[in-house]
Design a binder for these strands. Structure first.
Length: 197
DNA sequence: TCGACGATGACCT
DNA sequence: GGTCATCGTCGAA
């Protein structure tokens, strides 16, 4: 089974459920015919206006966050620490500003190109572990911000693969008050290609 | 305009 | 465990 996820999949209203369900799906990028991709092994859910960890908390609307308020099924890419591009998928209907952060993948397609992008000799478990590394390995930059994740350069594919999913708290959101404790991080227990901590 | 800082990662001891 | 690179964004002035 090899099924391209359509926009309907991302328009559903439970971002936590979507984040969990994306574990084991395949994320694929294609630039100038060059394909790279792999199984999603780690995600986090960010639940719009009510979530203190979310950039759209309390409806915050800026030049950067405006893309979050679009209807689900598009990418939200932003620069963190001036160095790392973090890749999110917007979910839910327009104006909800929910998002799923992709934190790690297990490479399957275009491994040589990913090695080149990461300046690595051979494949290691951290080749695409951690959100900054995912974007670097897949060649994702701010150019992909607001772009569809159901066509052209960005696609998510359901291959029928199942995963043993572990739930934990989100990473790097110390500013989020009590919401740091929400169990909104998911990862595949059986994969080595996840970020640590 | 200006200054502070971040949903990180690599390299150091 | 600690340091630091590096710059766009945002809120204050």
């Amino acid at each position: 089974m090899n099924k391209l996820l359509e926009q309907d999949y991302f328009l559903r209203d439970d971002v936590v459920q979507i984040a969990r369900d994306l574990i084991g799906k395949k994320l694929v990028t294609e630039f100038s015919g060059q394909i790279t991709g792999g199984y999603i092994t780690e995600t986090e859910a960010y639940a719009g206006k009510g979530d203190q960890a979310c950039h759209a908390h309390l409806g915050k609307f800026t030049k950067r966050t405006k893309v979050m308020y679009e209807a689900g099924g598009i990418a939200y890419v932003y620069l963190c620490y001036g160095i790392h591009h973090l890749f999110n998928i917007i979910t839910n209907q327009k104006d909800h500003a929910d998002a799923v952060l992709i934190r790690a993948i297990e490479p399957t397609d275009g491994v040589d190109l990913m090695l080149e992008r990461r300046n690595m000799e051979k494949i290691k478990k951290n080749i695409a572990a951690g959100p900054g590394n995912v974007s670097k390995a897949l060649g994702i930059t701010k150019t992909q911000n607001a772009q569809s994740v159901t066509a052209d350069e960005l696609k998510i594919v359901d291959t029928g693969k199942t995963a043993h999913i572990i739930t934990s708290t989100r990473i790097g959101i110390g500013y989020a008050g009590e919401d740091v404790n929400l169990p909104w991080r998911f990862y595949d227990k059986d994969s080595k290609f996840v970020s640590k901590r």
